[in-house]
């Protein structure tokens, strides 16, 4: 298959690589229909993330069609259309049971390496260096999805285009969680520093962080980190801001 591989600082290439195979009963193989480049991929591209190796397949925002399932994956069938979350999570460990799937204790085979840098290891992540498991990513024709009985979500409504659901894999929940962690309350002033579309996801003006921000009538300020400049709210009780990343308001 063809896949996007990291080839050193500021270099990626599309190369022919071996097709992925089922390695565990809980694996699935997904034929990818859409896959996005994330802002965090640019950190790999820049060469700031240690433990990248030339030939690593990039990509952690992807979706597609299930073409093969392991014997232990009872909830997916060949032909299902799925979006795959970027953290790989077993669903059974202490952290997964608490809902903290991005720090799953069973999905990072290189946990020892991560512990040396961070004290404890995080979960495995698709296409994001050996520190997060060294998994092949999704900027490719196919991907192996471990713990496929836990992660992928089926998209059963064919009217939903790939572009509408693809970002469930990362930036939409990331932006949403960013707002949720702030515990935003009525009357709060919100400022967002961000260079990319995750900020749109959490911008109160875009309403992606609706439960935390816009529904509680917070005052918002959005700033790109490239051009840090606040946009004054139009009123004290209505959320409105201009996102400098997408130039929409």
């Amino acid at each position: 298959m063809r896949a996007t591989v990291w080839s050193g600082r500021n270099t990626v290439q599309v190369e022919q690589v071996p097709d992925p195979e089922i390695l565990s009963d809980r694996d699935a193989i997904v034929k990818i229909s859409s896959t996005a480049i994330c802002g965090s991929d640019l950190r790999l591209y820049d060469g700031y993330v240690p433990s990248m190796t030339k030939g690593d397949i990039l990509g952690h925002e992807f979706m597609g069609e299930v073409v093969e399932v392991g014997n232990g994956v009872g909830n997916l069938a060949i032909g299902d259309r799925v979006v795959v979350p970027f953290p790989i999570a077993c669903g059974n460990c202490y952290m997964c049971v608490k809902g903290l799937t991005s720090v799953c204790e069973n999905s990072n085979p290189n946990a020892g390496m991560a512990e040396k840098l961070w004290g404890h290891a995080g979960a495995g992540i698709f296409g994001y260096s050996s520190l997060t498991g060294g998994y092949a990513g999704g900027q490719a024709e196919y991907a192996r999805v471990p713990f496929a009985d836990v992660g992928p979500i089926k998209i059963e409504n064919d009217d939903l285009t790939d572009d509408r659901v693809l970002f469930l894999s990362d930036i939409f929940p990331t932006g949403y969680m960013g707002a949720e962690l702030c515990d935003i309350q009525r009357g709060d002033v919100i400022a967002v520093w961000a260079p990319g579309p995750s900020a749109c996801s959490r911008s109160p003006a875009r309403c992606c962080s609706a439960p935390s921000a816009s529904s509680r009538s917070a005052t918002s300020t959005t700033a790109s980190t490239r051009h840090v400049r606040p946009v004054p709210p139009t009123s004290s009780t209505t959320s409105r801001s201009t996102c400098r990343s997408c130039s929409r308001s």
Binding site: R43, D183, G187, I190, A191, V192, W193, T225, R226
Partner: peptide, 16 residues
């Protein structure tokens, strides 16, 4: 206002 909430995303790439 009562409080301020700040949120940063990919702020490690801030350049300005």
């Amino acid at each position: 206002a009562a409080r301020t909430r700040a949120s940063t995303a990919s702020a490690s790439r801030a350049t300005t």
